[in-house]
């Protein structure tokens, strides 16, 4: 008799425990408008999409309005990069007062092998490069993922002299 009672108890317990789960999924089914967690991506790219400010999308070399960047071609970022995504090509130029000076020729960025580890930006003593939170970076051809970050004709931003800083 006791075993029969346990048998019935087990069946009832099974039904109750299963019904609890069913109720949860039914609640989701009915209130899908509230509980929905998906983002309809291509539709919301101009409206509700949220990309965090710090999101590591790609490395950029910011230029100011005079087409000047801060990179001195010191290659510290190139050394810091674990997978050789950065290639700094520099050239020797002669300044007006006759001194030889090494300046940036090409800042080549291989996005295809970049792992967004932030070590290049961490290593940069001039704060010349930074991460941008862009994320739609896919292209059809791998060769198109190799960027030259410095714009044509851009040059190094002159450091303000002590006098200028004071003023």
């Amino acid at each position: 008799m006791k075993s029969l009672f346990n048998y019935i108890k087990e069946v009832v317990y099974a039904f109750v425990s299963l019904a609890k789960g069913l109720l949860l999924t039914l609640r989701y089914f009915v209130t899908i408008r509230k509980v929905n967690i998906t983002e309809e991506y291509p539709n919301n790219r101009t409206t509700t999409i949220s990309v965090k400010e710090r999101f590591y999308g790609e490395v950029v070399l910011p230029h100011d309005e005079n087409n000047e960047h801060k990179c001195t071609a010191c290659t510290l970022c190139q050394i810091a990069c674990p997978n050789n995504s950065i290639q700094i090509i520099s050239k020797q130029i002669e300044t007006e007062d006759g001194k030889k000076k090494r300046v940036l020729d090409k800042w080549v960025y291989h996005l295809d092998s970049c792992t967004f580890c932030y070590q290049c930006i961490d290593a940069c003593p001039q704060d010349a490069i930074e991460m941008k939170n862009s994320f739609e970076l896919s292209v059809y051809d791998r060769t198109k993922l190799i960027y030259q970050l410095n714009r044509p004709g851009s040059k190094l931003k002159e450091k303000p002299t002590v006098k200028e800083q004071q003023s």
Binding site: R54, F55, Y56, T115, F116, C117, Y118, M131
Partner: peptide
């Protein structure tokens, strides 16, 4: 992951904890 993204910049492979503290 949103918290990670906002603070460390990455969602899965962060490289955030480094010798000496944290990256940012």
């Amino acid at each position: 992951l949103e918290i990670f993204e906002a603070n460390t910049g990455n969602r899965l492979t962060m490289n955030y904890i480094i010798p000496g503290g944290v990256m940012r």
